[in-house]
């Protein structure tokens, strides 16, 4: 168990991070992600308020859908990355990162209902099939859809979302039935997985982690997430800075890295091209699927490097040869 944003969380279960990772790619695993915040925003003005506060445009979706979005600072930096569940006409469940809940509430208001529910993420190609034996209702919810379901008399919510690159569902269940639901999911043949696998899975999938690929000084454009910006909205926090950056072109871009060998790339390492520093690794580890070191890095646009180009990662004084690869890093693209 490790401390994480004020929570005690398992880094891995007895079978270990690599086995948990492969189970998610090949079967199904369950993560207890109750540490994610849930801030509930209700009322006639809720939609307009969120449209002003968050970067993405909720008009792209509708009731019963989920959307990935950012809370930006005025300078365009990503203060937090968030999933919004549009539960019904006048109710939104906004889910920030564990440590950012208070920062997000300061910007959008609402009330914190994190302690009232647990969130169990069931992820992997077998996730729906397995979850169907626990709740057929929950298992039927489509990708990025949000729907209520009832489990053992308790009112629950489910969304077709996740953080692994696999199909999957995230179930919000009242705290009173959380342990029983967790046990039922395991009884359905879904093995639990810890924070370690959650991180290697999201890294292979090329998904950003706040504090690494997103944070102060890093904009959605630099992170390659221009689609998270609702350009058609006339006003939202950070818009002016982003428009300016879009015109000039971002000075650096998030790129994927795949090492030639097994050595894990590590965050903070320098990315060099022809002996010059051109960027920094923001996250790195070992890819259990590719059995190579992999990473994400912010690389200067001026370096004019293309996907497929060879670069060198310098970590702990040693040079690790690697190539730039357009994320996701798994599955392997044909062009690689």
């Amino acid at each position: 168990m490790v401390p994480f944003g004020g929570w005690e969380m398992p880094l891995s279960y007895p079978w270990g991070t690599v086995a948990e990772h492969r189970s998610c790619r090949e079967g199904a695993v369950a993560f207890d992600v109750s540490h994610l915040g849930t801030v509930r925003i209700e009322g006639a003005g809720a939609l307009a308020h969120l449209q002003l506060a968050l970067s993405n445009d909720l008009r792209k979706i509708s009731t019963g859908r989920a959307q990935y979005t950012h809370l930006l600072a005025e300078d365009g930096s990503v203060t937090d990355d968030i999933i919004v569940w549009w539960v019904d006409d006048q109710r939104f469940d906004v889910m920030p990162n564990a440590s950012n809940t208070s920062r997000v509430m300061a910007a959008i208001g609402g009330h914190d209902v994190t302690a009232e529910r647990a969130i169990i993420a069931v992820q992997g190609p077998q996730a729906r099939h397995r979850l169907a034996t626990v709740s057929a209702e929950a298992a039927a919810v489509h990708r990025f859809a949000v729907a209520p379901f009832v489990w053992k008399g308790a009112a629950c919510l489910v969304a077709g979302t996740g953080y692994t690159g696999e199909d999957g569902l995230e179930c919000a269940v009242p705290a009173e039935v959380a342990e029983e639901f967790w046990a039922a999911v395991q009884a359905a043949g879904v093995t639990p997985a810890g924070l370690g696998a959650r991180d290697t899975l999201r890294l292979e999938a090329g998904l950003p982690l706040h504090g690494h690929e997103l944070g102060p000084g890093i904009t959605p454009l630099q992170a390659g997430l221009g689609w998270v910006v609702g350009w058609d909205k006339e006003e939202f926090t950070g818009r002016a800075a982003l428009v300016e950056e879009k015109v000039a072109g971002p000075a650096r871009r998030l790129r994927g890295l795949v090492a030639e060998g097994r050595q894990p790339l590590r965050d903070g390492a320098e990315v060099q091209s022809n002996g010059h520093m051109v960027g920094v690794v923001t996250s790195g580890n070992f890819s259990p699927m590719r059995e190579r070191g992999i990473g994400l890095a912010l690389v200067e646009a001026d370096a004019r490097l293309l996907d497929g180009d060879a670069i060198t990662v310098v970590q702990r004084g040693r040079e690790v040869p690697a190539n730039l690869v357009r994320p996701p890093l798994w599955p392997v693209r044909e062009e690689e």
Binding site: L11, S12, G16, T17, V18, A19, G196, G261, R262, Q263, P264, F286, P288, G293, R318
Partner: peptide
């Protein structure tokens, strides 16, 4: 250490 993935 947990799952060992590389040895120098």
């Amino acid at each position: 250490l947990g799952d060992i993935v590389f040895v120098q």
